[in-house]
């Protein structure tokens, strides 16, 4: 029955991939920005968690209460004070700026924390598992990861479709100039989107940090993670562990319809 276990583990890990991909697609969906520092910002979230755990001596999962708002603010300011200026003109500028940012974060973390492997200790939940009978068992932590991932995606989806601000996100994505004519401040929307995306990505970084170890230099590998998931999702594949992330359909649908808008204007 080991293969069943492998499949279950795979599905549960898929949740983490989905979180990475959601962050990347949200930012791409709203402002056509591909953030090359995505992975590094996720690692930065894990390190922020590490520091807080060290100071407050709490469970890393509990520290998320502080880590997530902090990362949200970082994301908001990053977009508002820096990346917004790169959105005018060709699409090369945001790429170069976020690439530079990636180098800054990696080396900044290296200076602050050395190249040693770190891990986050979430206590009993890491090793406890739920027996399903017949030799099958599901770890509580992977299960929690999956539940959180699904929750985040569902919440984000209903935020985008049901709320006033969510509609403003989609309107800005469709046509930022027309959105401004509705009284929507696109710079603010972009910054909110970056803040939310980084919050999601930092969440993934912390869960990943509990699951395995991390180093300052591992960010790019996480970016590639996210990228693979976006490509898989983007190509409409819905097999195996990716099934949980069928919500990726929305950024895709979204991107294609706004491309049409771009052509007609």
């Amino acid at each position: 029955m080991t293969w069943v276990n492998v499949v279950i583990q795979g599905v549960l890990l898929g949740g983490l991939y989905a979180l990475y991909a959601t962050g990347l697609s949200l930012v791409f969906g709203v402002m056509r920005l591909v953030n090359l520092a995505h992975g590094d910002l996720s690692i930065m979230g894990a390190f922020a968690c590490l520091v807080l755990v060290g100071i407050l001596d709490v469970n890393p999962l509990l520290s998320l209460v502080l880590v997530l708002p902090m990362i949200f603010v970082v994301g908001y300011l990053l977009q508002r004070l820096m990346l917004n200026f790169t959105l005018k003109g060709d699409d090369m500028r945001p790429l170069l700026a976020t690439f530079g940012l990636s180098v800054i974060i990696q080396n900044g973390l290296l200076v602050g924390f050395s190249a040693d492997s770190r891990g986050l200790d979430a206590g009993w939940i890491e090793n406890a598992s739920l027996s399903l009978g017949g030799g099958l068992a599901v770890g509580w932590f992977p299960l929690l990861t999956l539940v959180v991932a699904i929750l985040v995606i569902v919440l984000l989806n209903s935020f985008l479709t049901r709320t006033r601000l969510g509609r403003a996100f989609r309107a800005t994505s469709d046509d930022q100039e027309a959105a401004r004519l509705m009284g929507i401040d696109n710079r603010h929307i972009y910054a909110l989107a970056m803040g939310i995306a980084l919050g999601i990505v930092a969440l993934a970084g912390v869960f990943m940090g509990i699951r395995t170890t991390f180093t300052p230099g591992i960010g790019p590998a996480r970016l590639i993670f996210a990228f693979e998931a976006v490509i898989m999702g983007g190509l409409g594949s819905s097999w195996g562990p990716w099934r949980v992330a069928s919500h990726w359909a929305w950024p895709r649908r979204w991107a294609s319809s706004s491309r049409r808008a771009g052509e007609s204007s």
């Binding site: 820096m82 990346l83 200026f85 790169t86 003109g89 500028r93 170069l96 700026a97 690439f99 530079g100 940012l101 990636s102 180098v103 800054i104 990696q106 080396n107 900044g108 290296l110 200076v111």
Partner: peptide, 20 residues
Amino acid sequence: GSWYLILLGVLAVIITVWFP
């Protein structure tokens, strides 16, 4: 080492953002 790379990163970001 790292500080040198950080400086390069900062320089690249500043130039990309404000002196394209």
